[in-house]
Design a protein around this nucleic acid. Structure first.
Lengths: 142, 142
DNA sequence: TTTGCTATTGCCAACATTTGCAAGCAGCGT
DNA sequence: ACGCTGCTTGCAAATGTTGGCAATAGCAAA
């Protein structure tokens, strides 16, 4: 299994001169196996369950690295902490309702006209991985 | 002067049961008089120069309030701290270059097709005040 | 296998921001 | 004037995240 992945994250790391440590491997797994967007603290306590030699700073530093390598994406839902998501599971954006707090996914396609415009008018290549948009949801709009 | 404002912030506050205190007045002035997007710490030390009885928590709490009343907007340029801007000076969005760190303004109009789509397809009323989009700027795209 | 370079980690302190709590103060009714 | 109610503040502690530094551990070359 896992044959369908384009490239093993471990491979991707070592190709770029990074080292595959147990910490990184387990953090990567935690993000990948998470059913939903997962926080740094959650990753920390989850990994610690099987591998007690881990520091929270390492979690943050690893997530920063994985983010730069585009292996994970970061979302801020306005909870006072940030959440992470495996990039391999596909991109999508979020609509967060400021009234009821509901979070809904939006397909990337909704943003193509925006990125096209930014590219055409400003020659700016937008990096919209996990964008969060605040506002009022359908339910609260009634 | 200031006759062109729609409504006095003091008036807007008291209408909603809030009080116009010296702290709030000076924080509001600091944001309004700032030539650029200003941080909480900057507001704090600036106001403290003329009014030493001020706590940093008050600055944060006041900014939170002004944000909810839509008197100021908040932008995160990825510096590890947030910046504020007077809403009365007009809305605009930001393109932040991940390579060179340059920040450019984009007119609100660029986003109308997006907000229309979100409204039509998802019945979601987007609250795009100061949106920040990361990517690569024209210079770095060459 | 051993060595050596340096990326990586843990620990701890700093930073930006939020929160709980008790005291202070404004405006209202009596 | 008095006290009540609830908004507002300062203070200090907590939270989420980042950064410096010295020790450790991958990995490649010998």
């Amino acid at each position: 299994m896992d044959k369908h992945q384009h490239k093993d994250p471990a491979e991707k790391l070592s190709e770029l001169g990074y080292r595959m440590t147990p910490q990184r491997m387990m953090i990567l797994n935690a993000v990948h196996n998470a059913t939903d967007h997962i926080s740094a603290e959650e990753i920390y306590s989850q990994v610690r369950g099987q591998y007690s030699h881990l520091n929270l700073s390492t979690v943050y530093r690893t997530l920063e690295l994985l983010k730069n390598l585009k292996l994970v994406t970061e979302s801020d839902f306005g909870e006072g902490k940030v959440r992470y998501h495996s990039a391999e599971k596909g991109h999508h954006h979020h609509l967060v309702c400021q009234k009821c707090g509901d979070v809904n996914d939006v397909n990337e396609a909704v943003f193509t006209s925006l990125t096209d415009k930014l590219s055409g008018d400003y020659n700016f290549t937008a990096d919209l991985r996990h964008l969060t948009i605040f506002g009022q949801c359908a339910k609260c709009n009634k």
